[in-house]
Structure formats: structure tokens, C-alpha cells
């Protein structure tokens, strides 16, 4: 009985793994159900944990409160003078802006979220956030922090979502070294399986690349919008006229120490149908269209 049960369970798990390893953009139902169920445990524990932490921080701060108070009194006097100056500058700024007709625009809407759970396995670094489909979160929406892009939404339940980092191996995205439009150092960035480190491939060897250059997304691939910061170049193995550079990027945004992230409510433009189909499917579609035209 036991060996048979073992075989059935191992086979079932292997099939599940093989199905999950497929590189498609769909989310798995089991993940969504588990996310929804886990929310009832993770949220209260996270809030209780942060409350306890805040209490101890508050106690620690009390000790230095008296000396800090004296310093702050002096600081207030200095700041009052500065505020007066700033008020005058703000009036002047407003007047100049109206003259130049400048408008402040936010390109994408942003939804802030709290990290309520981290990957239970030591081998991966996914996280769970407290925003779900009720808040308007959709699959593959980009996750950013002030340092730049960190990942995307990989599973959405009504109350919470799972996010995966761009350092994960499955992820691969179009990137450019330098500003979009002013550089032609295009390539593909993918995870290295190392925390906070990415690899950029296919950048032509004749393009000048230096350590410290900033890498941004290009928007190719249809998941991330263009212009999001990915990180700084940490190491370059210089290529040649026929060999591309091998570039290693240090991610500027770190998720491991963060409690809050922002979700870009960005929906990529729909892809043309023929991109998803085989080349001969395009021909069939064209033939079908031509046939209908001839019948008309």
C-alpha cells in the first residue's frame, strides 16, 4: 500500500511541477486559493508584529527625548526664518510656472501596498502584499520602490497578491543603458539567481558601456512600461565587434528590507493577435480575409 501511495503522490507532484514550470503568463488556481486563505493569518500577524516593534521603538526613543527636545527648539527658530524665505520663493515659483505653462503630470497611477508575507522557502524571495483584485490589481502589474523596478504581480486573489522579483530566473525584460532615445545600447535583462544582481545580454560589443551607467526598461516585452530604473552597471566584460558585452547590474531597489511597495496600475497595450500565433497561422488569417473579400 505505502509504495503505491508514494508513487502516486510523487507522480502527482511531478506533474504539478512540470505544469508550473511552463513559461506562460497565467496564474495557478492553487496559489490564488492559498493566498486568499493565508491572508486571514498573515495580515493580523504582520500588524501585531509592527505594533510590538513600534512600541519598543517608542520606548527607545523616550530616553533621548529630553536632549532632542532642546535641539529641536533651536532648530524651530532657525526653520521659522527659512519658512519665510521659502514662502517668498514659492510665490515666485508659482508665478514663473504659470508664465511657462508647466503642468505636473504623473504618467501612471500608483497604489501603495504593505508587504504582509515573505517567501516561506529560503531558496526564493517572493512576497505577499495586502492589495488584491478588489483594489484594482491585475496580473503582471509592475512593482516599484523609490530605487526603481523590483518585480511584478504573479498571482492575484481578491484581498492580496503575490509578487515576484525581477531577479527570479523566469523574468526577462527589454532594457537600455542610458536614457531611451539618446542611447542605442539595447539588451535583455534577466535574473542571475543571486540576490540583487541582474545580467544584461545582447548589448553589441561596439557600443561604449561603462561601470556605473544606469539601466532602464524599454517597454519591450509588453509587461513593464518604458523608463523604469533597473539598476547600475557593476561589472562589464567587454565584447568585440562580433561578440556582445556581458554586463552585470546591481539592483538599486531592494525588497528584502522593505515593508511597503508601490504597484503601477499599468496595463500594457494589447499585442496584435499574430504575435501569439505560429507564422503559418498569420497566413491562414490573411487567406481567410482574402477569401471573404473575393466572395464579396
Amino acid at each position: 500500500m505505502t509504495p503505491w501511495l508514494l508513487l502516486v503522490l510523487l507522480l502527482g507532484n511531478f506533474i504539478l511541477m512540470a505544469y508550473d514550470a511552463r513559461a506562460d503568463d497565467e496564474q495557478r488556481v492553487i496559489r490564488v486559493w492559498t493566498l486568499a486563505a493565508a491572508n486571514f493569518v498573515q495580515s493580523p500577524i504582520t500588524y501585531a508584529g509592527s505594533a510590538v516593534n513600534n512600541f519598543f521603538v517608542y520606548l527607545a526613543n523616550l530616553r533621548s527625548a529630553e536632549t532632542e527636545n532642546e535641539k529641536l527648539q533651536k532648530k524651530i527658530q532657525e526653520l521659522e526664518v527659512e519658512v519665510q524665505e521659502n514662502k517668498e520663493l514659492a510665490v515666485e515659483n508659482k508665478r514663473l510656472k504659470s508664465l511657462l505653462d508647466l503642468k505636473q503630470k504623473s504618467e501612471y497611477k500608483i497604489l501603495t501596498a504593505q508587504i504582509i508575507g515573505r517567501d516561506p522557502s529560503a531558496w526564493f524571495n517572493a512576497a505577499v502584499i495586502n492589495r488584491g483584485s478588489i483594489d484594482g490589481v491585475k496580473l503582471n502589474m509592475p512593482i516599484v520602490v523609490d530605487g526603481g523596478l523590483v518585480g511584478r504581480v504573479t498571482a492575484v486573489s481578491p484581498l492580496n497578491s503575490q509578487i515576484n522579483l525581477i531577479t527570479a530566473d523566469k523574468a526577462g525584460l527589454g532594457a537600455i543603458i542610458g536614457e531611451l532615445g539618446s542611447s542605442n545600447a539595447l539588451g535583455v535583462v534577466r535574473g542571475k539567481g543571486e540576490k540583487g544582481r541582474l545580467e544584461m545580454d545582447y548589448v553589441p560589443g561596439y557600443v561604449p558601456v561603462a561601470k556605473g551607467d544606469i539601466v532602464y526598461t524599454t517597454g519591450q516585452g509588453g509587461v513593464y512600461p518604458p523608463g523604469l530604473k533597473l539598476g547600475e552597471i557593476e561589472e562589464v566584460r567587454t565584447g568585440s565587434a562580433t561578440m556582445p558585452h556581458q554586463i552585470f547590474i546591481r539592483q538599486t531597489a531592494r525588497i528584502s528590507s522593505m515593508q511597503e511597495v508601490a504597484i503601477l496600475l499599468y496595463t500594457p497595450p494589447p499585442r496584435p493577435k499574430y504575435e501569439k500565433a505560429l507564422p503559418n497561422a498569420v497566413k491562414k488569417e490573411e487567406m481567410a480575409n482574402s477569401n471573404t473579400d473575393s466572395e464579396d
Partner: peptide, 13 residues
């Protein structure tokens, strides 16, 4: 596995 970034079923296996 369901809450992890790894493959579904790998921990179970």
C-alpha cells in the same frame, strides 16, 4: 509551495 516563488509541488515532492 503555493506561497513560495518556487515550483508548485517541489516541496511536496
Amino acid at each position: 509551495d503555493a506561497m513560495s516563488g518556487g515550483l508548485l509541488g517541489s516541496n511536496a515532492f
